[in-house]
């Protein structure tokens, strides 16, 4: 019932939402930066289900990046509640933030790869950080590189790769830990049309394997062609949230 209407509802317990398979939940989240006149996020409420592919669109400065920072706990909201993957951020200890981030895969516009490490090492780093054994690394890294279509490039350095390939490395790094949620922040912002579609296709593939994908973008083309849920943010507010949306100005 609740899911049918995507309105912001006052709720009793996060646990309830988790049980019905909501992996991302924001309830009237507000964030104002110091010295800013307007809040970056102004009472944003939304929930995203498991295995959903959701696009968040909005002009630059609309609050998309702030939203991402909320999800990865880089910033704390001034007001409102956030529950991701069953973790209520209100009860999250600062020391456990790394553990939270290991549960969410994040992909950035500028890739954020280590320039002096190979493709393999960049992906392996993700597993090293979370304390996976060398054996697990040897097993999982080639598998994920295969999935993103980078087989044979293990020993290349990021500078030897095209933009699209670099983004694949970043996606592989995010996905190698098999997170339930993948958040991609303008992953195609630096790519040409062809590579953009390759990356979007890859994200769709990942989503098909059961990962919830949140794609943050301002590309009208992606939005129009994908025919999936679109959440539009403007001036820190959710202005529309449609299951099969198109781009709205």
């Amino acid at each position: 019932m609740l899911l049918a209407s995507r309105r912001a509802e006052p709720f009793q317990s996060a646990y309830f939402y988790v049980k019905i398979d909501i992996v991302i939940l924001l309830d009237r989240v507000t964030k104002t930066y110091a010295k800013a006149l307007q809040p970056a996020l102004d009472g944003v409420s939304l929930h995203i289900q498991a295995r959903e592919f959701a696009i968040i669109v909005g002009a630059s400065g609309a609050g998309k990046s702030t939203l991402l920072k909320m999800l990865t706990r880089e910033e704390k909201p001034h007001d409102g509640k956030i529950v991701v993957g069953g973790i209520d951020y209100d009860t999250l200890d600062d020391r456990d933030i790394p553990l939270l981030r290991r549960k969410i895969g994040v992909v950035f516009q500028d890739f954020k790869l280590l320039p002096n490490r190979t493709v393999y090492e960049n992906v392996a780093l993700s597993l090293e950080i979370s304390g996976h054994s060398n054996k697990e690394i040897r097993q999982n890294v080639p598998r994920i590189l295969e999935l993103v279509g980078l087989r044979g490039k293990e020993k290349s350095f990021p500078r030897q790769l095209s933009g699209g390939e670099r983004q694949r490395v970043a996606i592989a790094r995010a996905m190698v830990r098999q997170p339930k949620i993948l958040v991609a922040d303008e992953p195609t912002g630096n790519l040409d049309a062809h590579n953009t579609w390759e990356i979007v296709k890859l994200l769709l593939k990942i989503n098909k394997f059961g990962t919830t994908v949140v794609l943050i973008t301002h590309s009208q083309e992606i939005v129009n062609r994908l025919n999936t849920r679109v959440i539009t943010i403007s001036e820190g507010k959710v202005v529309s949230d449609v299951p099969h949306g198109g781009f709205r100005q």
Binding site: E74, P98, R101, V106, S126, I129
Partner: peptide
């Protein structure tokens, strides 16, 4: 940048 990236992908202190 490297440190920020490591933090973003969940490296602890």
């Amino acid at each position: 940048e490297e440190i920020d990236m490591m933090k973003a992908i969940g490296a602890d202190q």
